[in-house]
């Protein structure tokens, strides 16, 4: 949940209860949002099959409004905006999901381990997370993006760095509240190794807020990618993404006001659905909530 460039909100165990209470959306809304999200993803996955080439330059027909040949008009080099929107959607969504996946893959195990046992590792992880959270996320994003360079993978890495701390915190918080419970003692007395306990017993019980966070981080990442592209730190031309399209559209608002409309709307729609469906994800992943 962020309209600014970063700073995920739900970053502290103190706040988690408030967040939980604020999510008072009825399940039907959450599920509708999840469906529209899937629809948009399907559009970007399958749409390009039917669309024109997104990189075909025809300078002569540039910056035209919607017409029967070009349903959304053309861009500054005469390329079809609709296909650039669809291919660009792929990039934006991939960056969004990939960066969250990277952040979770690194952050969750680190958080679980840090929460389970006190020690040097735990303190180190805690300190690093504190610094990453206090550090201005836009600055971090700009610097990591400049460092890694342009490109889908690099952008995902850069944004993952910004989002990893939240996962660490949440995983740790979940572990802290779980490890005192009886079933953990029981498992330990049975002789199960720590790693087994962490990943087979504790993790499934903490998955619920993590999936919610995953949805929110993805939304955050998509907006972050747009913002970075806006500042000129986006993907390699001629690849497009919604953020790149918005950046260029801003320069041509007078010449072609329609340019930014579709990418802007889709961006808002995706972020909206991710935020709204964040409540539905735990329902999918955690069978106990469904009961």
């Amino acid at each position: 949940m962020a309209s600014t460039l970063g700073a995920p909100l739900e970053d502290d165990i103190v706040v988690a209860p408030i967040i939980a209470r604020s999510r008072s959306l009825p399940p039907i809304v959450a599920l509708t949002a999840a469906c529209s999200l899937l629809a948009i993803i399907a559009l970007t996955v399958f749409g390009p099959i039917f669309a024109a080439a997104p990189d075909a330059i025809h300078v002569g027909s540039r910056l035209q409004g919607p017409s029967s040949t070009y349903w959304l008009g053309t861009d500054e080099l005469g390329r079809d905006l609709l296909s650039r929107l669809l291919y660009g959607g792929r990039v934006s969504l991939i960056v969004g999901f990939a960066s969250t996946a990277l952040a979770a893959i690194v952050g969750v195990p680190a958080g679980l381990l840090a929460g389970y046992r006190k020690g040097v590792f735990a303190s180190l992880v805690l300190r690093v997370t504190d610094v990453l959270l206090a550090f201005p996320s836009v600055l971090l994003a700009m610097l990591t993006a400049t460092f890694f360079g342009a490109g889908v993978l690099n952008l995902s890495l850069a944004i993952a760095v910004v989002n990893v701390a939240v996962f660490v915190r949440l995983a740790r918080a979940g572990t802290l509240s779980q490890k005192g419970l009886e079933y953990v003692d029981a498992a330990r007395s049975l002789g199960c190794s720590d790693l087994y306990i962490i990943f087979r017993s504790i993790l499934p019980n903490t998955v619920s807020p993590l999936t919610t966070q995953a949805a929110l981080s993805t939304a955050n990442a998509i907006v972050l990618e747009a913002g970075l592209s806006f500042l000129g730190l986006g993907v390699h031309p001629p690849t497009s993404s919604w953020g790149v399209m918005l950046q260029v559209a801003k320069s041509y608002l007078y010449q072609d006001p329609w340019y930014g409309l579709a990418p802007g709307l889709l961006l808002v729609a995706v972020v909206l659905s991710l935020n709204a469906s964040a409540d539905a994800f735990p329902l999918i992943f955690d069978w106990r909530l469904r009961a």
Binding site: L5, L9, S137
Partner: peptide, 15 residues
């Protein structure tokens, strides 16, 4: 919660 938003304020301020 508003206090926590301060972290994102610099980002929004840049843009």
């Amino acid at each position: 919660v508003t206090g926590l938003q301060f972290g994102g304020l610099l980002g929004g301020a840049v843009l």
